[in-house]
């Protein structure tokens, strides 16, 4: 199989593109196309496709361009909203994770003390007077941590809200 194009193909293609084939074609070119397989195929295929294009284009049912334009605006707006709500979702997930870690940490560290606290409570019932100091956990070590971690979670959440509001104003 050879892929070398016939030297007359360009000439015939130009005539086909201008809708001048075969009427305006020189006689020798028409005679050549009748014997050259490549040129005959080009003429046959191009004529069939051009004709199909003309009839199909005439049958095209078109919607109003305004509808498509507004649909595009709407889609772009929705994409922008999705983009600005992404940081707040991240902040919410982060805050939730921190709260979960704090809850787990608190439960683990106070599990032992909790048992002691229950026994203290039973003793308290037996006591004639209530000592408020006994109700408070005996150990207050790391109390700063229990304040700082929820504070960080709160800041992350507020940061997300701030980013969201800033992005909304930009739009």
């Amino acid at each position: 199989m050879t892929l070398g194009p016939c030297p007359h193909e360009k000439e015939i293609a130009a005539l086909l593109a201008g809708g001048q084939w075969p009427q305006a074609a020189p006689a020798d070119l028409r005679a050549h196309a009748a014997t050259c397989r490549s040129c005959a195929e080009l003429a046959l295929v191009t004529t069939a496709f051009r004709s199909a294009r003309t009839t199909a284009a005439a049958a095209a049912p078109l919607v109003s361009p305004g509808i498509l334009w507004w649909r595009a605006q709407l889609r772009r707006r929705n994409a922008a909203i999705e983009r600005v709500t992404r940081p707040i979702l991240g902040a919410q997930i982060f805050a939730l994770l921190i709260c979960f870690v704090v809850a787990v940490g608190f439960s683990v560290s106070h599990a032992a003390q909790g048992i002691g606290w229950i026994s203290d409570l039973t003793q308290l019932i037996r006591l004639p007077s209530i000592d408020m100091a006994k109700l408070w956990p005996s150990s207050t070590q790391g109390s700063a941590l229990w304040v700082l971690v929820p504070l960080a979670a709160m800041l992350a959440l507020l940061g997300g809200v701030a980013v969201y509001l800033a992005s909304s104003e930009e739009r």
Binding site: A60, V63, R76
Partner: peptide
């Protein structure tokens, strides 16, 4: 029109061509 002709003839499905043409223009925008 040229785009619809292309889609309709290549897919052989005018209904699909309608939908794809609209979607193409929306994405283009």
């Amino acid at each position: 029109r040229p785009l619809w002709a292309y889609l309709a003839r290549v897919s052989a499905d005018p209904t699909l061509a309608d939908d794809l043409m609209q979607e193409s223009f929306v994405r283009f925008l």
